[in-house]
């Protein structure tokens, strides 16, 4: 399996947009290389804006640039794309309903060695709470590239979250990205696994382990956390009658929280959640951290067995 970072998928998508959509502009707060925005910058110097280490100003400028028809893509780490600029996004982008694409790299624990100051695990929650905001967390390079290209055609604020490490690139390169349309990856009847971002691959690995033990899992890639694909989730849960959610994010406010809210209203069902349980991370190799904090394939397998027992 080819390993590629999702941030490079963003960079490749942005480069393609630079060639195909003249209204797209890119803004970066001194992390051009980390966000893989160099090719866009080289090919479109007049449409690339180096803002410096001033993220609040970047979001404000991006919001203003929509007046006159530009489609701004802002790029910085997830922490500086959300928590640092929440009020600027709330007033200038979400409430003002501006066509800004907030593109956030190095999200979650897998940022690794830089440690907890940079390991944003609250961003999905913050962003999904904002009216008008679409929240997308693709799972691999190909999907991140496709999502980057797709959001340029959607009119309205979008938060696009991706990561730093190289991870399996397993989705088809030609797969079209549809905002809000979950992707059914494995068909099973005993448990529904709803995963987002890097945890989609872990869920597929967990499915293999469960399968060997005679448990068949339905695996769905929830790349769009808002709007949620309610129909796909309900259809699966009606069959399996139990759910595991998996995400590289706080349990408070994340995907599991959205799923619990949906199911408690429409179809009360036992749920187990894999994610960060109200803690900060620490420095370390990405995959070791995921193991230590219980956000990996083993945790998904354990949670599946646990939730099946609760049916």
């Amino acid at each position: 399996m080819e390993l590629k970072d999702t941030r490079s998928g963003f960079g490749a998508g942005l480069t393609e947009l630079g060639r195909t959509n003249k209204e797209v502009v890119a803004l970066c707060a001194d992390l051009t290389g980390s966000l893989k925005m160099n090719d866009f910058q080289d090919e479109n110097p007049e449409r690339f804006f180096q803002i410096g280490i001033a993220e609040a100003n970047m979001i404000g400028i991006a919001a203003g640039m929509t007046i006159g028809g530009k489609i701004p893509f802002t790029g910085t780490f997830a922490n500086f794309s959300t928590a640092r600029v929440y009020d600027q996004i709330r007033q200038g982008v979400a409430y003002s309903n501006k066509n800004v694409k907030i593109c956030a790299s190095h999200a979650g624990l897998t940022l690794g060695e830089d440690g907890a100051t940079h390991q944003t695990l609250e961003d999905i929650g913050m962003m999904k709470m904002l009216p008008h905001m679409v929240v997308i967390n693709p799972c691999d390079y190909n999907q991140t590239k496709a999502a980057t290209i797709a959001i340029a055609d959607y009119v309205g604020p979008v938060y696009l979250r991706f990561g730093r490490p190289k991870v399996p690139n397993f989705t088809p390169a030609d797969q079209k990205f549809e905002i809000g349309k979950a992707l059914h990856l494995k068909k099973g009847d005993d448990v529904t696994i709803l995963a987002t971002g890097h945890l989609v691959w872990e869920s597929l690995e967990a499915e293999k382990t469960l399968n060997k033990e005679g448990i068949s899992a339905d695996v769905i890639n929830i790349h769009t956390i808002k709007p949620l694909d309610n129909d796909a989730i309900i259809e699966s849960v009606k069959r399996t009658k139990c759910v595991v959610t998996a995400e590289e994010h706080m349990l408070n406010g994340g995907l599991g929280d959205s799923i619990a809210q949906l199911l408690s209203r429409k179809l009360p069902t036992p749920i187990e959640m894999v994610g960060m349980n109200d803690m900060f991370g620490e420095s370390g190799p990405p995959m070791k951290l995921m193991e230590k904090y219980g956000i990996d394939r083993n945790a998904i397998v354990d949670s599946a067995k646990k939730v099946i027992a609760r049916k």
Binding site: A63, G64, I67
Partner: peptide, 8 residues
């Protein structure tokens, strides 16, 4: 910041 964006 917003005004600078409009100006750009």
């Amino acid at each position: 910041s917003n005004a600078i964006g409009v100006a750009l």
